[in-house]
Design a protein around this nucleic acid. Sequence first.
DNA 1: CTGGCGGCTATAGCGACGCTATAGCCGGCG
DNA 2: CGCCGGCTATAGCGTCGCTATAGCCGCCAG
Lengths: 234, 234
Amino acid sequence: MATENKQTRHRIMEVAAELLAASTSGQISTREVCDAAGVRPPTLYHHFGDKDGLLQAVVTDGFERYLARKRSLGTTGDLAQDFRRGWDMHVEFGVTNAALYHVMYGQPGRGRTTPAAEAAHADLVAMMRELDDAGRLRLPAEVAAGVVEAAAVGVTFQLIRTGGVADDPVCVLVRDTVAEAVIGPARTYTASPTTPPLQQAAARLSAELPHGPIGALRASETALLHEWLAELAD
Amino acid sequence: MATENKQTRHRIMEVAAELLAASTSGQISTREVCDAAGVRPPTLYHHFGDKDGLLQAVVTDGFERYLARKRSLGTTGDLAQDFRRGWDMHVEFGVTNAALYHVMYGQPGRGRTTPAAEAAHADLVAMMRELDDAGRLRLPAEVAAGVVEAAAVGVTFQLIRTGGVADDPVCVLVRDTVAEAVIGPARTYTASPTTPPLQQAAARLSAELPHGPIGALRASETALLHEWLAELAD
DNA sequence: CTGGCGGCTATAGCGACGCTATAGCCGGCG
DNA sequence: CGCCGGCTATAGCGTCGCTATAGCCGCCAG
């Protein structure tokens, strides 16, 4: 029982994360954490100070694992695609760890920012700086990071509320809209080689198809059609 | 002391709203509400059932006042400008009533939606329908409402966190970006009839497009796409 | 006038919460 | 061996959301 310092601390965090994930209300009590971890309250408060300290430790740990996984994927070479992948991973983390995500971004206090949220913000600013260095950013890096963060957090909360998943059309739509507003075109160097017939046909129709209602299709439907054609031509 | 039913109930709600606005943590206790209102706990629970009932009553009342004020402004005649004004009012309500806004949209429970949030959603869908009827919506009304809601709530939370105001550049940027993505240009009545090149392109894509899911499109979506292509090629 | 009736409120208290003052365990070091 | 310091347990404080019970008081029939 001597040097199980780290072990006890780690076990408490594990148990707290499990209870938090299993909780429907997103709230846990320190007492149930203590019971489940086989520990008395003073031990918990010795390691984490107070309940908020425990929650912050749990969410920071979970988010750092997510960040490590994200970084381990490296880059695809295409900054715009890296952006989309980063967005999707952020949303997926929030949806699969709804309770933790609320601890990160759902704190009522004015001006409060959790360590995990600050880490996410720093990571985002770094990506924006990368885009800026490549000459593909349409806005100052800090403003762009603010735009992306606001939109991504909003979408994630929405998906949590509606029980949606990361490939929800709303999520993809907002993601690509924000991407287009923030990221500029790649350097002219592209010159897409050997476009498959399906993509050619989609691009051709996209060029011919007017915006607004046509035939039996309403304006909203042609708009969605344009969206799909862009997806197919990509 | 007889028929002060409504008066007592109303006073409790007023006191609760004040305490909630004055609270830095965004949390209030039923006991301090009772003390401030000069009332004992059973009275509070008689009128509101439980603490959540009180909070919902307060937030619903505040939000209904906001909705009434919004509707009393009428329309400007320009739907796009109405959209921007509605966005700004929503954000302003959230920023100036941060605690209430967290009760509306910051509930951890999966799939939970508060009455006030549902009212806001219904109002938004109505506006999107109006845009659709005018032929200026690029997306189905429900999808558009989801996009706008996610972005607006995200921006509002962001402003509350950072202590910003409604005319923050990030807010305006996201607002106009979303507006451009959702709202199309005013109708021009060019009414281009289905030209042969369009029909050719539609038929060509229809031949190339497989049945079943492809890329980001689900099977149901490709099916609908095939339908529309047949419509265009007709 | 009066006596019951029913809606609203107060008294008092339950169980659970976050948190802690205090003391005891126990391995490492002189 | 003794003592010292980090970790843990016992027990409890004050507060929380909520409620069982009873009493107040205007209202209406008798």
